[in-house]
């Protein structure tokens, strides 16, 4: 309280206030922070008595509460709006993944994808490229959340438009890389496997762009297949083309191919150990004689059980092909 504004040394640096003889300044506090200041003036000096101070201090408290409430409401409305947007993004993204996979006489295909946050960067898809061949893709956009989800939508556009034109997995990846290098930011990349399956012969041709190796389990052997290839969006031009390789296998009755994203192998137990390639292989070996759906379920169940205590995981996708045919 300044009883005599003109004489008070604390106002010397201020321009003369002709209208103010006395001045009362009350900070508006919220959680011990100053969120505003209430000024009251009177034309005469010594214009405020203790009652005035008490009344105005009470008034200042009311004002602080009102401001705080208004801010809280604003924040919760904003939060609600963002949650609605995120929910919408989640629904939109679910629609980017196949709602159902096509069925074939000679083989089964089963897939599952689970984002770590509301939206994620994992992607899988299937498209019939001609009467004898089906193309499948599995990919993982670096990062998580909304940013990754946007790139995932872009990958879907590329897959849907290029798969029928460039049926060779190698050519497809070269073209997809060309499209992505120019459009994604330089610290992001996409790892991806593109594969074609001949629906009657069981020939499976695949190329890999920086993605996790494919687990192939047959009655005689099991191996991780890792054709050479750089992730998409990292490097343009010849160096990408020269390093991308194509591998072929002929699937026989009972053979299983498992495609997955690193959310599977890099899931951690509460002690920090990764699920890893060996556990994945062991689960598939144990369930290889079951249906593709049961193999997929067994993998995801094992990953969940393994990470149980932590309750956190990366985006995670599993795609299983099981050849039934002759």
């Amino acid at each position: 309280m300044l009883d005599d504004v003109e004489e008070d040394k604390r106002t010397k640096h201020l321009p003369k206030m002709k209208f103010a003889g006395s001045l009362l300044i009350i900070p508006l506090l919220s959680h011990d922070k100053v969120i505003g200041i209430l000024y009251a003036t009177k034309e005469i000096s010594f214009g405020f008595d203790q009652d005035d101070v008490d009344i105005l201090a009470g008034f200042a408290d009311q004002v602080s509460i009102a401001i705080e409430n208004a801010r809280l409401i604003e924040r919760s409305l904003e939060k609600e709006r963002l949650q609605r947007e995120l929910l919408l993004a989640q629904e939109m993204q679910k629609r980017l993944l196949p709602q159902t996979l096509p069925t074939f006489a000679n083989f089964e295909m089963q897939a599952v994808s689970s984002p770590a946050l509301e939206v994620g960067g994992d992607y899988y898809d299937v498209v019939q490229i001609d009467k004898d061949r089906v193309a499948m893709v599995i990919g993982d956009v670096s990062g998580k959340g909304v940013g990754a989800a946007f790139y995932m939508a872009e990958v879907k556009g590329i897959f849907q438009s290029l798969a029928k034109i460039y049926c060779s997995p190698k050519d497809f990846l070269i073209k997809a890389n060309e499209a992505l290098v120019s459009s994604i930011d330089k610290r992001s990349f996409i790892s991806l496997i593109y594969s074609t399956i001949h629906t009657t012969t069981g020939e499976l041709v695949m190329s890999r762009a920086g993605h996790c190796p494919i687990l192939y389990v047959s009655s005689k052997q099991h191996e991780y297949i890792k054709p050479s290839g750089i992730g998409l969006g990292i490097k343009a031009g010849r160096i990408f083309e020269e390093n991308v390789e194509e591998k072929k296998i002929m699937m026989k009755s009972g053979d299983v191919c498992v495609f997955y994203t690193d959310g599977v192998t890099e899931s951690r137990s509460s002690s920090g150990e990764e699920f890893g390639y060996e556990r994945l292989r062991d689960v598939v070996l144990k369930y290889k004689d079951r249906s593709a759906d049961e193999i997929k379920e067994a993998i995801i169940q094992n990953v969940w059980n393994y990470t149980d205590a932590q309750g956190y995981h990366d985006d995670l996708t599993i795609f299983v092909i099981k050849w039934l045919g002759a």
Binding site: G210, H211, S228, I234, K235
Partner: peptide
């Protein structure tokens, strides 16, 4: 290695 860094 998975991502192809040794080539770059």
């Amino acid at each position: 290695d998975l991502l192809g860094f040794p080539m770059l």
